[in-house]
């Protein structure tokens, strides 16, 4: 056990884990965040808190993670290397650990040209893989990037993201392997819609022994409508939404599309969980937190097991 977080305990005990996601708002409205997060109580083993996702300014993941802790929810704090240099990043890792945050997801982050401040500078002093190495070194060796000794090591369960659907295809698993070598103990994947391609990705991961070294959680995002599916297909780079998914939503009346999207998501969850090497799912119900209990109930993934 490295951090002793609930997520780590669940995964170590062999249960299929469930993580959810909750994005902080574009303002200081903590109540709004608490309200969204309240739907996730009892749903997942931990809740990801995004860090200015899609490069849009929101209240910071450190503060949002602390709010989740106060609510009795376990956060997976996300950190991107876009907005802070190694000084800021390490400082936040230490601060997060000091506040009792035990899961950390290390990302590079979306480019700022996609967000609400495209005129901003980006930092990229480190990339996600270097950040993984940084956190692991602080935790296991008590050393900062500079070699300076850490007074009080941050006990973190360290995670990373992987996108099985970007190019070059053959390199995606290798890059996930680099993340694991650098320190990632769990992986949350990009939203999966193309099952064939994901199956192929997982076969390669199994062959390379990566599923023995890290827990892989399959990323699932329920589609709310044909419009959303089309948007994801056309405008979100590195996402593969097969036409069959869109056709299926289109095949039902508009007011039934959301229900069909949830049905599809549940099927995807089961399909992923049956794949060798999948340790759980990461459910990203984007601005749809209130439907998470229903999805997980239908998937028979709640109530969550308790592990000590």
């Amino acid at each position: 056990m490295t951090a002793g977080s609930n997520l780590e305990k669940i995964l170590k005990s062999g249960h299929k884990a469930v993580t959810c996601e909750c994005g902080p708002p574009r303002g200081a409205d903590a109540e709004h965040f608490r309200h969204k997060a309240s739907f996730l109580k009892g749903c997942g083993d931990a809740v990801n808190v995004t860090d200015n996702q899609t490069a849009v300014v929101r209240f910071c993941s450190l503060a949002a993670s602390k709010i989740l802790l106060e609510m009795g929810l376990e956060p997976v704090m996300q950190m991107v290397t876009r907005d802070m240099n190694r000084i800021g990043l390490q400082s936040n890792v230490l601060g997060a650990a000091a506040l009792g945050i035990k899961n950390l997801l290390c990302l590079t982050g979306d480019h700022q040209s996609f967000g609400d401040h495209p005129q901003s500078k980006n930092v990229h002093d480190l990339d996600s893989i270097m950040l993984l190495h940084t956190v692991k070194t602080m935790r296991d060796e008590g050393k900062m990037v500079s070699g300076t000794e850490v007074q009080g090591r941050p006990q973190m369960f360290i995670g990373a993201a992987a996108n099985p659907f970007a190019d070059p295809q053959d390199f995606r698993v290798v890059r996930m392997g680099k993340k694991i070598a650098a320190g990632a103990q769990f992986i949350q994947t990009q939203c999966i819609y193309n099952m064939e391609r994901f199956r192929h990705f997982m076969e390669m991961a199994n062959d390379m022994g990566l599923t023995e070294k890290a827990y892989i959680l399959a990323g699932i995002t329920p589609l709310k409508s044909v419009g959303m599916a089309n948007y994801m297909k056309k405008f979100v780079p590195g996402l593969d939404v097969p036409d069959s998914c869109i056709a299926r939503l289109r095949g039902v009346p508009k007011d039934k599309q959301a229900a069909e999207g949830i049905k599809l998501a549940v099927e995807q969850i089961h399909e992923c969980l049956e794949m060798k090497g999948i340790a759980g799912i990461h459910l990203m119900a984007i601005e749809w937190e209130e439907r998470v209990p229903e999805i997980l109930e239908t998937a028979k993934l709640v109530p969550r097991p308790k592990v000590d």
């Binding site: 996600s128 993201a161 970007a166 190019d167 390199f171 890059r175 990009q190 780079p237 590195g238």
Partner: peptide
């Protein structure tokens, strides 16, 4: 340590 997930 690229490429990121935005390479298509």
């Amino acid at each position: 340590n690229g490429p990121c997930g935005g390479s298509s």
